[in-house]
Design a protein around this nucleic acid. Structure first.
Lengths: 237, 237
DNA sequence: CGCTACCTTGACGCGAATCAAGCGGCGTGG
DNA sequence: CCACGCCGCTTGATTCGCGTCAAGGTAGCG
């Protein structure tokens, strides 16, 4: 499924851990965590886990970007969440003890730590602080999902496209130039987040380009005017 | 805000508790819970809590039906979740320690137990079983929200209306006749769940009525053919 | 160098929102 | 007790956003 590199970075010195839910672990606990995980590398497009599969592990992104998506009508994909370095994925299904209801796919070559299921469940059972961290993550996911519901219900595609770009920026930030989104999607993937057709996504992006809101260079998207983008997204109050 | 009735039912003998997250409490713990809550009655349309307010309590529905909704563009409402007897509401904001991002409104006259915030937070901190119950609830909310996202993205209004009726049935069940939905909404409320205009909701309901999928009698909705409804909802696999 | 996958643009048609008008029931007050 | 007014429901006409189909163009890769 994925190339298993020899290197297995230690959680104690992992830069990603600080921003992750495991930031609350003591040095000793981090060391123990290292003993119960292994690290794997996934190339762009490879699956970390699969819709309908049983969860056997928790995944912590050591370095990279992941999308969580699900297959809807006629095989059309819907991107539900995005994850970056330091994020964990797969906790929802682990905690609810269900099959995955979405798949995790690498958006770029990524190295991901695979944490043993039973170890994780024991760890959260014994460490309320850690469990609360995970709970905070899930409540945040729920909040974002419900905001997405309102957008899909009440906004038009143009507004949702602007929102999507703002969401990508909030999640992955900018590249070194401080303007270009630090992530690349195919047009279809953007459509899969916005909830529209690929053609409409393309049309809107090139409209934004003409309106000098963004600047396109292949898959690179440079945001020229954040205020214009916010206004286009019709974000109130 | 609400008429505070004198009666304060004991959690130890509460029928609703069995189906609620508090089902895992011991007799003694239930008794302690009784000491940290009070019961209030809300009439149809009254607010239990309000968007943007600070959470001071957890609410457990002793008897009744509640909708959780949020205000979007131009004041248009979006129904995000529904709750019935035995359900708790307000846990998301309590656990994430944020303001409410939606309001809770009584769909019918309801009696609701108000559980002290600090007591609840202590209780889940000391009782991993209870916390896991709440986590299971949130993960389920997240799953349903994400399914709703896919529907809003990929299905047309007709399919979503059929899904909505199925969802109402799954949540509140049937009345004594085994066919009529055990809940009544205004046409506008139905539209607020489906994510459409009131007029479209009305048109679709009367189409379903003509197609003998449902039968309308005022706000009562009788489901004549569950299979037809499922087919109309275009539920795959 | 050619194939494939992705991107782009145009034309067309339908679904559904919006606007507008009328109906019916219910509560209130004269 | 009836009249009035308000609110929710219903239906029709019109408009237009956006999805779909179709036809290239382009870039990366074997």
């Amino acid at each position: 499924m994925a190339n298993n590199k020899d290197l297995n970075p230690a959680c104690t010195t992992c830069i990603a851990r600080a921003n992750s839910v495991f930031g609350v672990l003591s040095h000793e606990q981090s060391h123990e965590l290292t003993l119960h995980k292994s690290c794997a590398v996934y190339k762009r497009g490879q699956y970390i886990f699969n819709e309908n599969g049983f969860p056997h592990a928790l995944y912590c992104i050591n370095q990279g970007k992941i999308k969580l998506n699900t297959t809807g009508i006629d095989g059309k994909e819907q991107i539900l969440r995005l994850a970056k370095t330091g994020d964990v994925i797969g906790y929802r299904s682990l905690l609810s003890n269900e099959r995955y209801h979405c798949s995790a796919v690498a958006l770029e070559d990524s190295s991901v730590c695979v944490i043993d299921r039973n170890y994780f469940l024991e760890a959260v059972g014994n460490n309320p602080k850690l469990l609360f961290e995970v709970v905070r993550k899930i409540t945040n996911d729920l909040k974002k999902a419900e905001e997405h519901i309102v957008s899909l219900s009440q906004k038009n595609v143009r507004e949702r496209m602007a929102e999507a770009l703002l969401f990508f920026k909030a999640t992955f930030g900018f590249a070194a130039d401080g303007q270009t989104l630090n992530v690349t999607f195919s047009r279809e993937e953007i459509a899969d987040y916005v909830g529209t057709s690929t053609e409409s996504a393309i049309r809107l992006l090139s409209e934004f380009n003409q309106d000098k809101i963004i600047e396109l260079a292949g898959k690179k998207i440079k945001i020229l005017s954040l205020p214009k983008l916010i206004k286009t997204a019709n974000i109130d109050d």
